[in-house]
Design a protein around this nucleic acid. Structure first.
Length: 421
RNA sequence: GUGGCUAUGGUGAAGCGGUCAACACGGCGGAUUGUGGCUCCGUUAUUGCGUGGGUUCGAUCCCCACUAGUCACCCCA
């Protein structure tokens, strides 16, 4: 126990952090380009925020939240996603006061008590964006295009964009009824899950993987045929925008998002080779959430993407950057007398912003050379008895093995010059 | 939460109911005087085979539980 991480968590080790940094850098670069600003909200919030925001009957809230009472008796929950928090912050800090649209993005840990498997962790990381305060379908298209651009920038080509509209409080109930009457006489044939979905959330039946349910669902009314005029228009315009931008998509009337707050646009980028975890980026519009959280009715749209899954996808495609060694100079001190002068030189090089390393164990020349090599040093600087006697160091270029003798007096300048050239 | 599979040194992995548990990589050291990347040699790896029980004269190899990983379902990112 003492030397084991809790189930579903993972160390990101030094040999892999560069992959995360690479991904995060790409994300920040892109968000800047699209005018999204980073926001960092607390890792935990009042439980109520997620219950209201995400929806009490969702799986996330019902069985996946890390909820506990703090010492003051408050019910606290580790954030299972960041949209509710972003909206809370938007309201609390009156970000709407700036007028117009508020464009936010976040990167951070989320927590869900799931059964872990590859690409699914209890602590996982999401990057997401939220555009709050604009109802035009252009912003939906912008959000989707940012997602598409990210995956494309990363080199991930074999992704599939699916879109759908889940309607609004006006037209969804109508559709819901139509669906129920469609399944009414098939009810007993549906799987157990779907039978309970029939009452609670019949839209979910369309999403069922059970082959028989799939069969039964064939010919079910499509929500896109039942949208109210406003939703239908919004959806049409979104498709025009996507086509206009050259973003390929497929319509999937069975695409239903898991969280209650979605309205109108729902979309998902899939990377099929990941199997059950193929959903790498998903989002949609949530025009009702801000009001649900106590604000004025405010339209909003956003997405979230699972960084572990993106990384997994990049790994299968061999798209991750290699870790590059970072060492300009390795100093080799031979013998006790050379130790302090070498140590001083180490500091002087670092003061010049050159990355420098040395060995402290008094190993053999050969062993130290090996270390220099392993660390990817560009130069090795050797200081031993001969060098001390001559007040000069031996500088070895590790790539072409050329060696020169450089007086201590000009050593720093010489090395700095060589490395920076 | 349900079901299947798996669990050997830092890593990848062979292996058998009972002599020192292969091999490869890695680490460390060496191949004449103070020199790396290739090659060769030696050495090392909680005297040990996830943890705890059981069967047995005896288990790393058989059984059970637990833990963890993995896959599928559920759901999601």
């Amino acid at each position: 126990m003492l030397t084991t991480v809790p189930r579903g968590t993972k160390d990101i080790l030094p040999e892999n952090v560069h992959e995360w940094q690479y991904l995060e850098n790409k994300i920040r670069e892109l968000c800047l380009l699209y005018g999204f600003n980073e926001i960092r909200t607390p890792m935990f919030e009042h439980t109520e925020l997620f219950m209201r925001g995400i929806g009490e009957t969702t799986d996330v809230v019902e069985k996946e939240m890390y909820t506990f009472l703090d010492r003051g008796g408050r019910s606290i929950t580790l954030r299972p996603e960041n949209t509710a928090s972003a909206v809370r912050s938007y309201l609390q800090n009156k970000l709407y006061a700036d007028g117009g649209i508020t464009k936010l993005f976040y990167i951070g840990s989320m927590f869900r008590y799931d059964k872990p498997q590859a690409g699914r962790y209890r602590e996982f990381h999401q990057f997401g964006i939220e555009a709050i305060g604009e109802q035009s379908s252009l912003i939906d298209a912008e959000v989707i295009s940012l997602g598409a651009a990210l995956l494309k920038d990363l080199g991930l080509n074999d992704v599939l964009l699916k879109i759908n509209s889940v309607g609004c409080p006006k037209c969804r109930p109508v559709y819901r009824e139509k669906l129920q009457s469609f399944f009414k006489d098939k009810l007993t044939e549906l799987c157990n899950d779907c039978q309970s979905r029939y009452e609670r959330n019949p839209l979910r039946i369309l999403d069922c993987k059970n082959p028989h349910c799939k069969e039964l669902a064939e010919g079910a009314p499509k929500i896109t045929d039942c949208l109210c005029e406003e939703c239908a228009d919004h959806f049409d315009k979104l498709q025009d925008s996507l086509t206009n931008l050259g973003i390929d998509y497929i319509l999937d009337s069975h695409l239903v998002r898991g969280l209650d707050y979605y309205t109108k646009t729902a979309f998902e980028f899939k990377y099929l080779p990941l199997g059950a975890q193929s959903a790498i980026l998903g989002g949609g519009r949530y025009d009702g959430l801000i009001e649900e959280c106590g604000g004025n009715p405010t339209p909003a749209v956003g997405f979230a993407t699972g960084l572990e899954r993106v990384l997994l996808a990049l790994e299968t495609q061999k798209l991750l950057p290699p870790k590059n060694a970072y060492c300009d100079v390795f100093i080799i001190a031979m013998g006790k007398k050379a130790e302090q002068p070498a140590f001083k030189l180490l500091q002087q090089l670092r003061d010049k912003k050159l990355s420098a390393l040395m060995d402290y164990a008094g190993r053999s020349m050969k062993a130290q050379m090996k270390q220099a090599n392993k660390n990817g040093a560009k130069y090795a600087v050797i200081i031993g008895d001969d060098e001390l006697a001559n007040e000069s160091a031996t500088v070895r270029n590790m790539t072409d093995s050329a060696q020169t003798t450089v007086p201590f007096a000009s050593l720093i300048d010489k090395i700095t010059f060589e490395v920076n050239k």
